[in-house]
């Protein structure tokens, strides 16, 4: 079976035929088994055995997305077969790169201060919301110039990771 593996905007073509795996034309011998009682997989590749944390992405929404975490660094990997890749190309789905006009909480925490008001123009790098977690105050800043459309939290509120804190409208004075 032929797969297209996307890692960090790079695409590799990987063909799996039993333990014979071809990566962009290079053949390796590889085998993957579970390590019982752990979230690890045992990968044997050209005689080298590795124990790596590896699981389906929790928000993968079905097939193809894996999180591989060797040596403490987490990799988001998408594995598509030819058909699914073709659909991707045609529908353009999966390209989620367009800038979101919201400030989201990068971690769970407590809102200490909101430093902007609706209607206010902000510049890139300007402090927007101060969030406290693990006893440290973290100032969340604007990534680009924008106008604050709405503030969705108040000081004292507890927020979850990914929760929208502030909405922007495009560009300053928009």
């Amino acid at each position: 079976m032929k797969y297209f593996v996307t890692i960090d905007d790079r695409e590799l073509e990987v063909t799996v035929e039993g333990d014979r795996v071809t990566v962009d034309g290079t053949v390796v011998r590889a085998e993957l088994t579970a390590v019982p009682g752990t979230p690890l997989k045992q990968l044997t590749i050209d005689g080298k055995t590795l124990h790596w944390p590896m699981e389906r992405a929790p928000d993968g929404g079905g097939g193809g997305r894996w999180v591989v975490a060797p040596l403490g660094e987490s990799w988001d990997v998408e594995v598509l077969d030819e058909r699914a890749r073709h659909i991707r190309r045609l529908t353009g789905s999966g390209q989620r790169k367009s800038g979101e006009n919201v400030l989201k909480a990068p971690m769970p925490g407590l809102v200490v201060r909101v430093e902007v008001e609706p209607g206010q123009a902000v510049v890139a790098g300007q402090g927007i919301v101060v969030l406290e977690a693990m006893k440290m105050e973290n100032e969340l800043r604007a990534s680009a110039a924008a106008t604050v459309a709405a503030v969705r939290v108040v000081p004292g509120a507890t927020v979850e990771k990914g929760e929208v804190l502030v909405e922007y409208s495009l560009g300053p004075g928009a």
Binding site: V5, L43, V68, P70, L71, E73
Partner: peptide
């Protein structure tokens, strides 16, 4: 967070095998 480039092929093989 920077990925160790030398691991990319191994990561791709692991993920493809897991999906397969």
């Amino acid at each position: 967070g920077v990925h160790d480039e030398s691991l990319i092929v191994t990561v791709a093989v692991a993920a493809a095998l897991a999906e397969d």
